[in-house]
Amino acid sequence: MAGKRAARQQDTDEQPAKASAAASVGVDDAARVLLPADCRMAAQAALKAELLGALDAGAIVLDGGQVERVDTAALQLLVLFRRELDTRGGTLGWHGTSDALNEAAGLLGLAQLLNLPAAALA
């Protein structure tokens, strides 16, 4: 299982470096995942692989600050990620959320399921 995940991650090495934008997160040992600027369908296989890899970390911080384009499938991916994380006892935090992300999550009523910062709901 783990080997499979690793293999998948190798396939998606062109992902932007993930640590760069996650400097100011309180939880130091949290795994950080940077959401790409275009989160739409084409990017989701890679994103999914990355999220799967992060599942074991326990505490995870998502960086959505650079998200410009997002669709329902992307948010669904994140919602299911959060759900699985919950069942494993992990926590999801956010480091930066773009307007596009907030707007889409708000419109679809998924902000709560994504544990988005309350301010973003406005």
Partner: peptide, 18 residues
């Protein structure tokens, strides 16, 4: 109908309701 495991999720399928 959503898969229980994230690993099994096909991102092109939709499992949301409102």
């Amino acid at each position: 109908s959503a898969p229980a495991q994230l690993a099994e999720l096909d991102p092109s399928q939709c499992y949301l309701g409102w």
